[in-house]
Structure formats: C-alpha cells, structure tokens
C-alpha cells in the first residue's frame, strides 16, 4: 500500500516545519514553499506527524482511493 502526499502551495506559509522534520519527504523550493519530494510514499508516521503540525493545514496525506489517512 502506498500513500499520496500533497502540499497546498496557496496555503503554505513556508514555515519550513515539514522540511525540517522530514527532509526525505518534503523539500522547500526557491520561494521557500514546501513540496513533496515524491508524490507516492510508503506509509510513514513521521509524515503524518508533519501534516498534523503544519500551522496552516496545507499538507494532505491520502490513501489509494483519495481518502484522507487518519492522523491518529
């Protein structure tokens, strides 16, 4: 099973929290905004934790059918 990772670039304020916590999964571009390193990832608790901690809830972690993966 793989997850899909999305960052809403309109919402992202470039806090760098996600990229600081999980650099394997998130990368900051020249504007300082986040983007997923790869859109398809293996299930990873650290990525979920980063999504929970995003101050503007810009990170979506989705299952195969587009359903949101529960945070807990």
């Amino acid at each position: 099973m793989t997850w899909r990772l999305r960052v809403d670039r309109e919402a992202c304020i470039g806090s760098g929290m996600c990229a600081g916590a999980v650099p394997e999964a998130f990368d900051l571009d020249a504007d300082g905004k986040s983007r997923p390193v790869r859109e398809e990832i293996n299930p990873d608790q650290d990525v979920l934790d980063a999504a929970v901690s995003c101050p503007v809830e810009a990170i979506a972690v989705l299952g195969r059918d587009g359903e949101e993966i529960p945070w807990d």
Binding site: G20, A21, D46, D49, V52, S53, C54, P55, V56
Partner: peptide
Amino acid sequence: PPEHTRLRRLVARAFTA
C-alpha cells in the same frame, strides 16, 4: 526530532490558523 515531533503534534492542532 523525533522527540520534538511527538510533543509538538500534541499541541499543534490548538494553534492552527
């Protein structure tokens, strides 16, 4: 991290935009 991550996620939801 990872200790920081564990603690921060406990409070993060209360401070989102």
